[in-house]
Amino acid sequence: MEPINTEIIAKQLAGCHAAIKILDEHGSDQAPAVKKFIKKVQLCPDSTHIRLYFDDFYFLAVPLASESTLTETEWTAHDQESGLTYKVTL
């Protein structure tokens, strides 16, 4: 796993339909996967999180301190502090 690279994530995910799932530290679902269109990807104003925007208002924020893995079909980010894992499957 590597630190989050905002530019690479934005190129891969922006403009795509994806299934988004959040897992707890035991690998259990915190909520069911939701299918969303990712309109844009950008840093939050204080540069602590990467935001995946679903429209001009709603977004999912993932801590930049998370370790991430990116493949052609999935982006996974694990936040050690919260124990949460974010999975975005294209």
Score class of each variant (00 low, 15 high):
71 T>Y: 03
8 I>G: 01
29 D>S: 11
26 H>W: 07
62 V>N: 03
9 I>Y: 07
59 F>E: 00
42 Q>D: 13
68 S>I: 00
50 I>R: 01
8 I>S: 15
89 T>L: 07
85 T>G: 02
21 K>V: 09
26 H>S: 11
83 G>T: 04
51 R>E: 10
2 E>L: 06
68 S>G: 11
63 P>A: 02
30 Q>G: 02
13 L>Q: 03
66 S>H: 00
49 H>E: 13
50 I>F: 02
47 S>V: 13
86 Y>E: 03
38 I>A: 05
76 T>C: 08
40 K>Q: 15
1 M>E: 13
44 C>Q: 05
56 D>M: 07
72 E>P: 03
81 E>N: 13
60 L>G: 04
83 G>P: 05
36 K>N: 10
82 S>C: 04
39 K>S: 08
64 L>S: 06
89 T>A: 06
65 A>N: 14
80 Q>W: 04
5 N>I: 08
67 E>F: 07
83 G>E: 07
9 I>W: 04
30 Q>P: 01
41 V>K: 00
54 F>H: 03
55 D>Q: 05
37 F>L: 13
67 E>R: 09
78 H>P: 01
67 E>P: 00
21 K>S: 14
60 L>Q: 12
31 A>E: 11
6 T>G: 10
62 V>I: 15
25 E>Q: 10
75 W>K: 01
62 V>L: 08
15 G>N: 11
58 Y>A: 12
33 A>I: 05
9 I>T: 15
63 P>N: 04
82 S>F: 02
85 T>W: 00
20 I>K: 02
50 I>S: 01
59 F>L: 10
83 G>N: 04
74 E>M: 04
70 L>S: 03
78 H>K: 10
14 A>G: 07
52 L>D: 09
88 V>G: 01
38 I>H: 02
55 D>A: 06
23 L>P: 03
39 K>A: 06
84 L>K: 10
65 A>E: 12
52 L>I: 11
69 T>M: 08
31 A>F: 12
42 Q>Y: 08
73 T>E: 13
66 S>A: 11
29 D>V: 05
10 A>W: 05
18 A>F: 04
57 F>S: 13
67 E>G: 11
38 I>C: 05
5 N>R: 14
70 L>T: 07
87 K>Q: 14
70 L>V: 14
64 L>C: 07
